[in-house]
Amino acid sequence: MDPVQTVDWSMLPAPHDDGACDHLTQLRLPSIQLPATVGGPIDPGQLDGTVVIYVYPMTGRPDRSLPSGWNDIPGARGCTPQSCAFRDHYQELRSAGATHVFGPSNQSPEDQREAADRLHMPFPLLSDADGQFAGQLRLPSFEADGQRRLKRVTLITRDGAIVKIFYPVFPPDRNAEDVLNWLKQQEA
């Protein structure tokens, strides 16, 4: 497994709830086929059961520099620790009722595949490189080095309808545990 660097989250600017996800409660996911790192395209909006979708800005690659000022953008840093936490809690999330877990970003399918392979992800990462999924849901975003990046938000859906939103997500490495605790509360 790829070791995850320990991050002192107190040294980074925390995102604040700007209300950009308030409209998502009870929305249905759009029916859009997203390229996946495993198998063919996946349409999260057509899946039955409880689906966890953690949307993130981008996973850095060892062979590329991060966008300039990345650490100064509230909530930008932490995609790898977040993904690794979902990887490490994957079986627990499944046991708590998640039928699927996905990690979409607007990175290319190739970048998503590189991250999935390097991080040994047990579930597919999805690519919304054309922005259709994020656009139809009106997901919040920011700009870094002239590229639009999605803000970090986690959606839990049941049979295609959003039932829980985690936004803003900070620190990102705790998100999987927060989702797991919420799922367990639903079982009780």
Results as ranks from 00 to 15, higher is better:
Thr6Tyr: 11
Gly146Met: 07
Asp17Leu: 10
Glu92Tyr: 11
Thr25Asp: 10
Leu139Thr: 01
Leu119Arg: 04
Leu183Met: 10
Ile32Pro: 08
Asp130Val: 08
Ser108Ala: 10
Asp145Thr: 09
His120Arg: 11
Pro35Trp: 04
Met58Arg: 06
Asp88Arg: 01
Asp22Val: 10
Pro13Phe: 02
Phe123His: 11
Glu92Asn: 14
Ala176Met: 08
Ala134Arg: 05
Gln147Cys: 12
Gln5Asn: 12
Ile165Phe: 02
Thr154Trp: 00
Gly75Val: 02
Ala14Ser: 12
His120Ile: 10
His16Val: 15
Pro3Cys: 06
Trp9Thr: 01
Pro62Ala: 14
Phe133Lys: 05
Gly160Val: 12
Gly19Thr: 11
Pro30Thr: 07
Pro104Gly: 03
Ile53Val: 09
Leu126Gln: 05
Phe123Cys: 06
Tyr56Asp: 02
Pro171Gln: 04
Ala76Pro: 03
His120Asn: 15
Ala161Ile: 14
Pro35Ser: 01
Thr80Arg: 00
Ala36Cys: 11
Asp63Leu: 06
Val4Phe: 02
Arg94Pro: 00
Thr154Met: 05
Arg158Phe: 10
Val163Gly: 02
Ser10Leu: 08
Phe86Met: 06
Leu180Glu: 06
Val163Gln: 08
Phe170Pro: 03
Gly135Ala: 05
Asn181Arg: 14
Ala96Glu: 05
Phe170Arg: 08
Pro3Tyr: 10
Phe102Lys: 09
Pro168Ile: 06
Gly19Cys: 12
Val52Glu: 01
Gly39Ile: 07
Thr25Pro: 00
Thr99Asn: 13
Tyr167Arg: 07
Pro41Glu: 11
Arg149Ala: 08
Val7Asp: 07
Tyr54Arg: 01
Trp70Thr: 01
Ile156Gly: 00
Asp72Asn: 06
His89Cys: 14
Leu24Lys: 07
Phe86Asn: 02
Met121Ala: 13
Met58Asp: 08
Ser83Phe: 08
His16Ile: 11
Asp130Tyr: 03
Gly97Thr: 05
Gly131Arg: 10
Gln132Asp: 13
Pro168Asp: 00
Asp159Glu: 13
